[in-house]
Write a protein that binds this DNA or RNA. Structure first.
Lengths: 250, 250
DNA sequence: ACTTGTCTGGGCGCTAGCGCACAGAACTCG
DNA sequence: CGAGTTCTGTGCGCTAGCGCCCAGACAAGT
């Protein structure tokens, strides 16, 4: 959470042609998103959309029983608050900051205005939304068929792709609640990965030592999500700039 | 699969104002969708969008191992082929006819053309897409936390809402592959429901005898999906006509 | 009627993950 | 530096669902 980053670290914004970019930047407001903050709650009306730069936000549903499960995550490759332009203005899921950091927020009306111009921003937003759907449906399949360890690998890789370094600030408890499994299940899976030298961790900090090792253990779901994001967003890149490509869409 | 139904039995079409409706109807082509037909396969380019009237289509992902899991279903409340206007033109999931019946198909270009008019059809399609996302993320959560029996109830209710009667043509094997569980698991759960007098079945035919019984056993996921669909589509209903409201959005 | 293929009903043993409970280890803050 | 809190490791017993297998039941076709 060090120096405030530039809007173009968000890859949706970075992909915009200069005119659109300038228009939006004028209305963007940098915000710090501390871990645990709830950007919106189930059913609550949205005020702002958020373009994360260094933060990561988790979209998840909390059941009546208190159990929860993440359906998708959003980092610097995307935007939080698509229901603003999809028309629903809210969703039954919550959006919670999973990795503290920075984002730019945009007043809902402005986003809608830009969307309705039917320009490249619209096209980008819709494609991103489709990528998000892929993530959701893949999560559904993964929840059904893959082991906790595989899911942990998927989750670590997806998170890693949204960060600059390879250190996550993240307790096992928190990961467990994202994946919707027991904390002890994560302890065990993470223990395996640590013993294999793939990661190392201490109290709330995970360092990925061997990314290839993760990729070797992960299920196909990670690849599907990553490839689809790349496909959907890489050929809608109009402005070449300092931001480079999102790791997720490299 | 008896008499060919009217386009307005599809509730997206039915909700259109007369002008848009007339435009589209001119380009709609009735098709029979036999059980098991694959409307599009993972990664394949889409030619047509489909508006089911009496058919039901399942969107699901098939893993490398052959295991599969449905992420959402589409009946007369929706449209198959949203990636045509979302911009991706294809998805990693397959679309397979889960209940044989009728649909109207529309050439992809025409759909896009209508979408790009930015009229009510666009608004409807986006809202429907959001409802679909709700379904997907709810499926993810449900896969994680609920029992096979609860999921079967959810699935039966969602299917029932898309049909006129209360008889499904459906083997246990097929249901199992939708839910991504073992066929024996469905045998057992269905056996329970039958013993409780909630359903009755014989070789590929299921009759729901006691809908309230299902609603009593189902998990919250059904309600969330149903309520959200209702919220998203009921207040975008412009043309009152013979179709009435989708059972899903009654 | 008889055969053939397709569905459904069980009956194993097995395992991944759950729920619970507790101890030790690592940070934090007074 | 010590007290308190928050994480992590581990060890149970338990259960839902899996994989496999086979028997019976039903339907359709020749």
């Amino acid at each position: 959470m060090a120096p405030a980053p530039s809007p173009s670290q968000n890859h949706l914004l970075a992909a915009l042609p200069t005119a659109e970019y300038e228009f939006l930047v004028a209305h963007l407001e940098p915000v710090r998103l501390p871990l645990g903050e709830m950007l919106y709650e189930p059913g609550g009306q949205l005020q702002y959309a958020y373009f994360p730069t260094t933060a990561i936000v988790s979209l998840h549903y909390v059941m009546a029983s208190g159990a929860s499960a993440e359906s998708a995550g959003v980092g610097n490759e995307g935007i939080v608050g698509i229901s603003l332009f999809m028309g629903g203005n809210t969703t039954p899921s919550a959006a919670v900051v999973q990795t503290g950091g920075h984002a730019y927020r945009l007043e809902g009306g402005k986003l809608l205005q830009e969307f309705n111009r039917a320009g490249l921003m619209q096209r980008l937003l819709l494609r991103y939304t489709q990528a998000l759907m892929t993530q959701m449906s893949q999560t559904a399949a993964c929840n059904r068929h893959h082991s906790v360890e595989q899911q942990l690998c998927r989750w670590l890789l997806l998170t890693l792709d949204r960060l600059s370094g390879s250190n996550l600030v993240m307790t096992q408890e928190l990961i467990a609640s994202m994946l919707g499994v027991r904390r002890e299940g994560i302890t065990e899976a993470a223990g395996n990965l640590q013993r294999a030298g793939v990661i190392s961790y201490r109290r709330g900090h995970i360092a990925v030592l061997d990314r290839a090792g993760l990729e070797q253990r992960v299920c196909e779901c990670y690849g599907v999500v990553r490839t689809e994001l790349k496909r959907l967003l890489c050929d809608v890149r109009y402005r070449q700039n300092e931001a480079g490509c999102n790791p997720l869409i490299r």
